[in-house]
Measured scan of single mutants.
Amino acid sequence: SPEVQIAILTEQINNLNEHLRVHKKDHHSRRGLLKMVGKRRRLLAYLRNKDVARYREIVEKLG
């Protein structure tokens, strides 16, 4: 489901952010981070168009 995919991506994004705080010059990982953020944004847009209630619920849960 989109909610699960968004939750997994959010966790991976948070982990990668911590990694990049330590390894500032790791541009390869930064590119992966940007791809993940874009994918999460697309999934959220899809969910917002399909079911606003589910969209609001996941945004509330994940912050």
Score class of each variant (00 low, 15 high):
H19E: 03
M36V: 05
G38V: 14
Y46N: 09
L9T: 01
R56I: 13
H23Q: 04
L9N: 01
R40W: 07
K25S: 12
N15I: 13
H28W: 06
R21P: 02
R41D: 10
N14T: 05
L9E: 00
G63I: 15
V22H: 12
E60T: 08
A53Q: 12
N17W: 15
K25M: 11
Q5H: 06
L43N: 00
L47I: 07
L44D: 00
G63A: 14
R31P: 03
Y55R: 02
E3G: 04
L62Q: 02
S29G: 09
H19G: 02
N49T: 12
L20H: 03
R48P: 00
R30H: 13
Y46E: 15
S29R: 07
H19A: 04
V52K: 13
L62F: 05
D26S: 06
L43H: 01
Y55H: 04
L43Y: 03
V22E: 10
Y46G: 06
I6S: 00
N17C: 15
I13L: 02
L9A: 01
Y46P: 00
E18K: 08
G32P: 06
R48Q: 06
A53F: 07
R21C: 09
A45Y: 05
R54F: 05
E57M: 06
R30V: 09
L34F: 08
D51L: 04
Y55D: 01
R21E: 05
E57G: 03
R42L: 10
M36K: 07
Q12V: 08
E60P: 01
L34G: 05
K61A: 11
R48G: 02
K24S: 12
S29E: 04
L43F: 03
A7W: 15
K61C: 09
T10A: 03
R42Y: 09
H23C: 10
S1K: 06
K24L: 08
E11W: 08
G63V: 15
L62A: 02
L16T: 03
D26H: 13
K35W: 09
E18C: 13
R54T: 05
V4K: 10
G38L: 14
L62P: 01
E57H: 05
D51V: 02
L34C: 13
G32H: 15
K50N: 12
A53L: 13
A45E: 14
G32M: 15
Y55N: 02
E60Y: 05
H27A: 10
N14E: 05
N49D: 11
R42Q: 10
H19W: 14
R42K: 12
I58N: 00
H23I: 03
A53I: 11
V37P: 00
P2R: 05
L33M: 08
A7D: 05
L47H: 00
K35L: 13
R54P: 00
V59P: 00
V4P: 03
R42A: 10
H23V: 04
I58G: 00
I58A: 05
L9Y: 02
G32R: 15
E11H: 08
I13P: 00
V37A: 05
E11I: 13
N49W: 12
K35P: 01
K50P: 01
N15W: 15
E57C: 07
A45D: 12
Q5L: 15
Y55L: 02
E11G: 04
R54C: 06
I8D: 06
L20P: 01
K39V: 10
R30M: 12
L43R: 00
V4M: 13
Y55P: 01
E3M: 05
I13Q: 01
I6M: 02
R48C: 11
I58V: 07
I8P: 01
E60C: 11
Q12H: 12
H27P: 06
N17H: 13
H19P: 00
S29D: 05
R30L: 14
H23K: 03
K39H: 07
A7I: 15
A7Q: 11
R30W: 14
L47G: 00
A53T: 12
L20S: 02
G38K: 14
Q5R: 09
G63R: 14
I58C: 07
M36W: 03
E57D: 08
M36R: 05
R42S: 06
R42G: 04
K24M: 09
D26F: 04
A53R: 10
E3R: 02
R56S: 06
Y55C: 04
I13F: 02
K35A: 10
Q12R: 11
N14Y: 07
R30C: 15
N15A: 13
E11R: 08
R42D: 06
H23W: 03
R30E: 06
E60S: 10
L62H: 02
I13Y: 01
R21H: 04
R54E: 03
K35R: 09
L33R: 04
A53C: 12
R41T: 07
R30Y: 10
E11V: 09
I6P: 01
K50E: 11
R56W: 15
R21I: 07
L43I: 07
L34P: 02
K39A: 10
L34A: 11
L16E: 01
H19C: 08
E11A: 08
V22F: 09
P2I: 15
L44C: 09
D51R: 01
R56C: 14
N15S: 10
R54W: 04
D26G: 07
T10Y: 03
L44F: 02
S29H: 13
Y46Q: 13
H27L: 09
V52Q: 12
H28V: 13
A7P: 02
E3H: 03
R41M: 09
R42H: 06
S29Y: 06
R54K: 13
H28N: 11
V4E: 14
I13D: 01
G32T: 15
K24E: 08
L47N: 00
G63Y: 14
A7T: 07
A7Y: 12
Y55W: 15
V37Y: 13
L16Q: 02
N15T: 11
T10V: 09
I13S: 00
Y46I: 14
V37D: 02
I13V: 01
N49S: 12
S29V: 11
A7L: 15
E3W: 05
D26N: 05
G63S: 12
V52L: 15
P2Q: 06
R48E: 06
G38T: 12
R30A: 08
V52F: 15
E60K: 12
D51K: 01
G38F: 10
E60N: 08
Q5T: 07
Y55Q: 02
R31Q: 07
E60D: 07
G32A: 15
N17Y: 15
N17F: 14
S1Y: 15
V22Y: 10
Y46S: 09
L62C: 05
R40Y: 06
K25V: 06
L47T: 00
I58E: 03
N17E: 11
V22G: 08
I8T: 07
N17S: 13
Q5V: 10
S1D: 12
E60R: 12
K39I: 12
P2T: 12
A53P: 06
